[in-house]
């Protein structure tokens, strides 16, 4: 093990980064490289696994172990790797097309199993590498080369999908909120179990400005709700807005703090065993709604690896380490002289 203190530079590989100028991926890469040394994990014990898409080039730029696999399959490859090698810190880098379209099945089952993996989902709401088709998170009606009259399908709510798949850690951030992005990467790294981080990321070529409301300094505070555990869901330039619970419809809705009504104040509780509040936050979408950023859910449950190791140990305790002789010489054998 290397005892040297690592720095950001230690995590930069010798490969030239080849994303388009202005791509949000640069910021994400820089923040991941910045946070990595803080984690206290030796480089050789870190693996970045990706699928296909712009985001999936990520492993080439990290000076760790890396595996750039095939479209949509990174969660499955990473699951096999971490089941075989639970000693490693394994990160999955994926995009909205990779994770939610071709790889949707692997994503939900990885989350359901609570495999101890860190998932960075770069959501730019478009297919970039294949030059601009609508993705499973594209806004309905989006005009692209493959939807010249507007896309017809509704987008996934990414976080609701993750929560519905029983994810034990669900968070969201945006590529331009540097400090918040760093903090979320730290939280992700420290979670035991499937940790899912959606990073809203701008594609300057095929979907520029899709998150403009969250980036424009003049208006962003009216559109961003930064979740603080234990705090009410307050946002807005003058902190005068709040997501409150409409008990008649059992949903969060945007209210003014200076106007009282029948709604109930909600204090965020990321550790609630029940995912209902997190789900309400994930579904808090619409014209007048802010976008919640932060940790929606963080609960500790046994990981798939822990259960798998325990099963093996219990069997060895009960029946011993299997030997080759024991394996071959079954009790129902017979002898021929």
């Amino acid at each position: 093990m290397s005892s040297n203190v690592l720095t950001r530079k230690d995590f930069i590989s010798d490969q030239a980064v080849r994303w388009c100028p202005g791509c949000g991926d640069y910021a994400i890469l820089a923040q991941v490289q910045k946070v990595m040394p803080e984690l206290g994990i030796d480089r050789e014990n870190i693996v970045f696994v990706s699928g296909i898409g712009c985001a999936s080039r990520f492993p080439y730029y990290m000076n760790t172990y890396g595996f750039h696999t095939i479209h949509g399959r990174a969660p499955a490859v990473a699951t096999g790797l971490h089941l075989a090698r639970p000693d490693l810190s394994v990160w999955v880098v994926t995009g909205d097309g990779d994770a939610l379209s071709i790889g949707g099945n692997h994503l939900i089952h990885m989350l359901r199993r609570n495999v101890d993996l860190k998932i960075l989902l770069f959501n730019n709401k478009v297919y970039g590498l294949t030059k601009g088709q609508f993705s499973p998170t594209s806004n309905q009606g989006m005009k692209t080369k493959s939807s010249p009259f507007g896309s017809k399908a509704r987008p996934f709510s990414t976080l609701a999908l993750a929560l519905g798949a029983e994810a034990t850690f669900v968070a969201r951030t945006v590529d331009t909120e540097t400090q918040h992005l760093q903090e979320m990467i730290r939280r992700l790294a420290n979670h035991r179990g499937s940790a899912f981080l959606e990073i809203l990321q701008n594609c300057p070529v095929f979907n520029d400005g899709v998150y403009e409301d969250l980036k424009d300094r003049k208006i962003k505070s009216d559109h961003l709700l930064i979740l603080e555990n234990g705090e009410p869901l307050v946002y807005g330039a003058d902190s005068n807005r709040e997501l409150r619970l409409d008990t008649s419809a059992m949903r969060l809705y945007p209210a003014r703090r200076d106007l009282s009504d029948d709604s109930v104040e909600v204090r965020h509780n990321e550790a609630a065993p029940d995912a209902s509040l997190a789900m309400m936050l994930a579904r808090a979408e619409g014209e007048d709604y802010p976008v919640p950023l932060g940790v929606l859910r963080a609960v500790r449950e046994p990981t798939f690896e822990e259960l798998s190791l325990a099963e093996g140990q219990a069997q060895r305790d009960a029946h011993g380490e299997g030997t080759l002789a024991e394996l071959l010489y079954s009790p129902d054998r017979w002898k021929v002289d």
């Binding site: 696994v49 595996f67 696999t69 095939i70 399959r73 499955a76 490859v77 990473a78 699951t79 096999g80 790797l81 971490h82 089941l83 075989a84 090698r85 490693l88 099945n105 692997h106 089952h109 798998s308 099963e311 093996g312 069997q315 060895r316 029946h319 011993g320 380490e321 299997g322 394996l327």
Partner: peptide
């Protein structure tokens, strides 16, 4: 499992092969 085998029933055939490739990488 006491023989050191991790038998993984995957969500589909593709995950079965790709998880195996991940384990092989490991």
């Amino acid at each position: 499992p006491r023989y050191g085998v991790t038998a993984f029933q995957a969500e589909d055939e593709i995950a079965a092969v790709t998880a195996s490739i991940g384990a092989s990488f490991g």
